[in-house]
């Protein structure tokens, strides 16, 4: 197995597991949003790796050759890169909205703990005020 493969496979597995675990077991809104962005990173990495082809260069041409002088046609799949660009922007928008909602939740309830979240899988003791 190549190093690239190992790194990509390992990162996807690790990031997805950490993100999902965080979402399942935390009820603090900020930690939930952090877990979300970790999961998002895992999914974006998955999406962009679907289009990777071993040994090929970036999908840009410079005149008659690729950026590194390789012949045209020897490039990776540009479509997933375009998709991931969209997905990143969308992820940013949802994170921004989630954060401002967290601010409102904190100001109206005085806590960041989202009650009744996490279906009893949490290991955080409920904090009573």
């Amino acid at each position: 197995m190549e190093v690239t493969e190992l790194v990509v496979y390992g990162s996807i597995l690790l990031l997805a597991a950490v993100g999902i675990w965080g979402i399942l077991s935390r009820r603090n809104l900020i930690k939930l949003i952090l877990s979300l962005t970790i999961l998002e990173t895992a999914v974006n990495l998955l999406l962009v790796s679907v289009g990777y082809i071993s040994g090929r260069s970036a999908p840009i041409v410079n005149g008659d050759t690729g950026l590194d002088g390789s012949p045209i046609g020897e490039i990776v799949d540009p479509l997933p890169q375009a998709l991931v660009l969209t997905a990143i922007v969308i992820g940013l928008a949802t994170t921004a909205i989630a954060l401002i909602v967290a601010v409102g939740y904190y100001r109206s309830t005085g806590t960041l703990e989202l009650k009744s979240w996490s279906y009893g899988l949490t290991n955080e003791k409920e904090v009573r005020k």
Binding site: E2, T4, E5, V8, Y9, I12, L13, L14, A16, A17, V18, G19, I20, W21, L24, S25, A42, L46, S49, V50, G51, Y52, I53, S54, V76, D77, S118, L121, T122, N123
Partner: peptide
């Protein structure tokens, strides 16, 4: 935290295995 960790690992491993099935670095195009 064991149930949450197990569940998370299971989901991540399923997605991961499906990705291996799809194939990484293969010339789909």
């Amino acid at each position: 935290s064991i149930p949450a960790i197990l569940l998370a690992l299971m989901v991540a491993a399923t997605i991961f295995y499906a990705f291996v099935e799809v194939g990484f670095g293969e010339p789909e195009v």
